[in-house]
Each structure stands twice: as C-alpha cells, then as structure tokens.
C-alpha cells in the first residue's frame, strides 16, 4: 500500500512537469493555432542555463532559474518572431515543418555548445524530503516542490487570463484573430506574449525535470516534450484545465505502469491510452465544440 502511494505521488510529480510543459503547447495552439514542436527543446535550453549558472558559475539555484526564465522567454519570443510570424498566412503544414526545424536547430546548438556528453545536473531543490508513516513513506523535496509549483502556476495563469486585459485579449485572439483586431487588440503582440509565457513555463519545467531526473543532454527535452503534447491532446488541446488533467493523468499512468506492468512498456501504455481516449472522445477529456448558431 505504501509503495502504491509512493508511486502515485511520484506520478503526480512527473505529471505536474508534463502539465507545466503542456500549458505551453495548449496556449500556443489555442491562440496561434499551431503546434510548436520546438517547445520541448526550450525546456532543454532552460536546463542547460540552470546547469551553467549553478554548476559552472557557482551561483545559487534561484539565480539559475531566474536567468533561465528570462533567457527562455526571450528565446520563445525570438523563435515566434523569426520563424513563425512570417508564416502566419502559410499552410499549417509549412508551420509544422518549420517547428520541427527549429526543434533540431535548438538541439544542434546545444550539441555544439555543450557537447553530447550527459551533464550531471545538481538539483535546484533544497527542500528536505518528507518522511511519513514512521519512515515507510518518503516524499522527496523535488516531488513536493514540483507539485506545489504546478498548482501555483495553474492558479496564477487562470487568474491572469480571467482578470487581466491581456488575458481577455488572449481569449479573443484564440477565438477569432480578425474580430480581435477589430476590438483594437494587437494580435501579433498577443501571440508573442503567449510564446513568452509558454517559454517561461518551459524554463521552470526544465529546472524541475532535471532536478528529478538529473541527466542533461541536448535531447533531454524531446521525449518529455512529446509526452506533454500528448497530455495536452489528452486533456483537450486549447484548454488550460485540460493540460493540467492530461498532464497529471499521464504522469500517474506512466509511473504506475512502470511499477506494476513493465518499465519498458510504460511509454507504449501511455500512448495506447491516448489512442483509446481519442477514439472515444476525439476532442480530448475537456475539449469541447461549441455549436455556433447562424
């Protein structure tokens, strides 16, 4: 029983990371109607920034995360402005291929700068592990911090979208860019803001992910990136609560299959669940279609 709880909580923690990454996918998809496949690699860049600041320069983890957030935010805005904005009127396929290109570009830049040898990442978490039930159940500091970060980010983001002018502009742009412009909303600016937020979250996800799984390579971001994309589709792409539910479910399913079925098959099981969900509900768990009256 204790081991089940432990696997479950670790699953929630992994799922929280997926959820934070999935937010970036789902917001960008909701607003720019594109899949930013380079999103996973922004996580990896965030990881390397934290690594460089903490392990090479010897500064504290807070400085590392802060710098990673700033640099990834800038990176996200630059990627959008240079690679995606010129393609706003192009076919979705051209944008998708560009996104894959950006993904390889980031991986290869990291390869060039940091080499292919895995770096051993020092955890940014200094919170001590929590021992429960007379020491039978240990919850690591990383797990606690990850889950709390996810909750804080969710609440913050939801409040931002509901309460602020920029948040309402994001909702308007996600529904109808032309009509949003007719309201006086700067559509390009709003899309850039979405990339900025998504990339800042990717930096945080990178720090948390590398703290829990401390090997950093130029490909560190790609698998979590794809799984977070699955989580976003799973929960209903475009939906923020969907990203949370999708991410958490995915993390729990993955960890429990690793524990009780097979660690080799865990990814296959995750993707099989996705296929089943999409067969039953093609819009994802919280994805909905609004019937427009004419």
């Amino acid at each position: 029983m204790m081991s089940f709880i432990s696997y479950f909580i670790n699953g929630l923690s992994l799922g929280s990371v997926y959820a934070i990454i999935a937010l970036g996918y789902t917001m960008v998809y909701g607003i720019a109607k594109m899949l930013n496949f380079a999103h996973g690699d922004v996580i990896m860049i965030g990881g390397y920034v934290v690594f460089t600041v903490v392990s090479t320069m010897g500064l504290g983890p807070v400085a590392g995360i802060l710098l990673a957030v700033i640099l990834c935010t800038v990176l996200g805005v630059v990627i959008e402005g240079v690679a995606y904005r010129p393609l706003r009127m192009a076919s979705p396929l051209a944008v998708l291929i560009t996104a894959i290109g950006v993904s390889y570009l980031l991986q290869n830049i990291a390869l060039l700068v940091f080499g292919s040898n895995p770096k051993s990442f020092t955890s940014v978490v200094t919170v001590p592990a929590l021992k429960l039930a007379d020491g039978k159940l240990t919850i690591s500091g990383e797990t606690i911090v990850t889950i709390i970060s996810c909750v804080v980010i969710m609440i913050g983001l939801t409040t931002f979208i509901k309460k602020t002018r920029a948040g309402q502009a994001m909702l308007a742009v996600s529904e109808d860019k032309g009509a949003a412009q007719l309201m006086g909303i700067n559509v390009d600016g709003t899309i850039a803001l979405t990339f900025a937020i998504g990339s800042a979250l990717a930096a945080i996800a990178g720090a948390l992910l590398c703290s829990a799984y401390p090997t950093l390579t130029p490909y560190t971001g790609s698998m979590p990136g794809i799984k977070a994309f699955v989580a976003a589709v799973f929960g209903g792409i475009g939906s923020i609560p969907g990203a949370l539910i999708g991410g958490l479910l995915l993390g729990v399913i993955e960890n429990l299959s690793k524990a009780y079925i097979s660690s080799q098959l865990s990814d296959a099981i995750v993707f099989a669940v996705l296929i089943v969900v999409l067969l039953v509900k093609p819009t994802g768990i919280l994805g909905k279609k609004i019937n427009e009256k004419v």
Partner: peptide
C-alpha cells in the same frame, strides 16, 4: 457578426471597450 462564441455576452461587450 463574429461574436466571441465561447465568451459571455458581458465579456464580449467588455472586449469592445479594449482600447
């Protein structure tokens, strides 16, 4: 018309005053 279908009537009106 191009109203924002998923948003409420009130939210639509508020967006009209965006500027």
């Amino acid at each position: 018309r191009r109203v924002f279908a998923a948003l409420s009537v009130y939210e639509n009106l508020k967006l009209g005053a965006y500027t």
